[in-house]
Simulated assay, not measured.
Amino acid sequence: MKTFRTAIVGTGGIAAIHAENLTDLGGRAEIVAAADVDPDRLDAFCDRWDVSGRYPDLATLLREERPDVVHLCTPPGLHKEQVLACLTAGVNVLCEKPPTLSLSDMDEIAAVEKVSGAHFATVFQHRFGSAAVKLRRLVAEGAFGRPLVAVCNTLWYRPVEYFAVPWRGKWEIEGGGPTMGHGIHQFDLLLSILGEWEEITAVAARQARPTATEDFSAGMVRFANGAVASIVNSLLSPRETSYLRFDFEYATVEVEHLYGYGDENWKVTPAPGHEEAVRLAWESGESGVPSGHGAQFTALFDALEAGEALPVTVEQSRATMEFVAATYASAFSGRAVRRGEIGPDSAHYRRMDGAGAPWAAESPEPSEPSAAAPTEEARA
């Protein structure tokens, strides 16, 4: 088993999640370097995780080190240029979500990846829990019959203080609100299970938070296999939950969690007359692996060792990003948007807000401040 030389760029809260999960992989990864513009934060991170290479920026790190893979844990507005720098240097790169701010950025990354000899992947860790892996297999096998109806809710709460961080709530830096940066994990999992979507009709609004982006969105989605799903993304929900439900011909499959699930968070309800077949199907195969960065990192190093593309690939990431762009395009135009419709001639190809959100000319009116800090803020 090979030990992969790993570097982390950006040493804030999410970087600690990466470091912790990397050190739990039984020697498969060695964190050899880290970079951050804040020297005190960089030193604290490197001291905590015993990292010897300390650099003020990615360019210096890439010049001085030769890591097998770079983990980007920086704000979204920095991702594209940092990804391109890694790929151009021939270094594999794993990027936190959202991978870019636009579809045009994704296509630029795809073009550079093709000639670089290196691979790009996005952190979409909910795909990798054993229950999700099992459900994808059972759907492919037709064990539960046709998918008919689905629900995908990301109902989270972020108070006004959450947006005091300068890069939050701005299209130019964060790329969007809960559609782009929060609910993306749940509906990426939904898309990975139900496959290609065909059309979305959506709404988005700035209901209560002092942001340029939305703080709520919802959509109705039709899939190529005939399934229909409702999707809600909110930062306004005091009782927080992440909930997905899949109604198949022979069973309902549900998962409810907040920032990560285990096998115990899943529930399967068979249709009358299908109890034994559904039970046997669900009890077969994959089990025991919770969703989380560690599960994806294991898959990533397996791919590196095999010389394969890294999960989640640029093509898979683009499909999810296209869904985000279509959500905004539908919400801001008031019409349904079909897959493949947003090309270089669309304003939403280069910016998620297109020509601007409907409320762009209005001053944001903040809600009353809350004393409560957002739960698990570093994971959002």
Rank of each mutant, 00 (worst) to 15 (best):
W359S: 02
V112E: 10
V115M: 00
C152E: 05
V93K: 07
H126M: 15
A202L: 06
P76E: 05
V255A: 10
L72N: 04
V203P: 02
E196Y: 01
A357N: 00
L244P: 05
A295T: 00
A355S: 09
S367L: 13
D345H: 07
E96R: 02
H274L: 03
K114D: 02
E286N: 08
G262Y: 10
F144H: 06
Y250Q: 14
P99Q: 05
G226F: 07
S217K: 03
S242L: 03
W282Y: 07
R66K: 12
P147I: 15
L135G: 08
R351H: 12
D50N: 12
T74A: 09
A16L: 01
P210S: 08
R350F: 11
S237G: 01
L190T: 00
A132Q: 12
P99H: 04
A89N: 14
S242I: 04
N92E: 14
A59D: 14
L138N: 10
T6I: 07
L101H: 01
A218C: 11
A373P: 05
G334W: 07
F248H: 02
D47K: 13
R318C: 00
F223S: 06
F45R: 10
L103Y: 09
S116E: 06
L42H: 12
D47F: 06
S52E: 13
Q82M: 15
A251V: 00
A16P: 01
A33D: 06
Q125F: 15
E276G: 01
E283A: 13
P56M: 11
D353K: 00
G145F: 13
D50C: 11
V160E: 09
V228P: 01
H126P: 05
D57Q: 09
T23D: 14
E376F: 11
R338A: 14
L235W: 15
G117M: 03
D302I: 03
R41G: 10
R54F: 06
L189F: 05
A303E: 03
D345I: 03
S237W: 05
E283W: 14
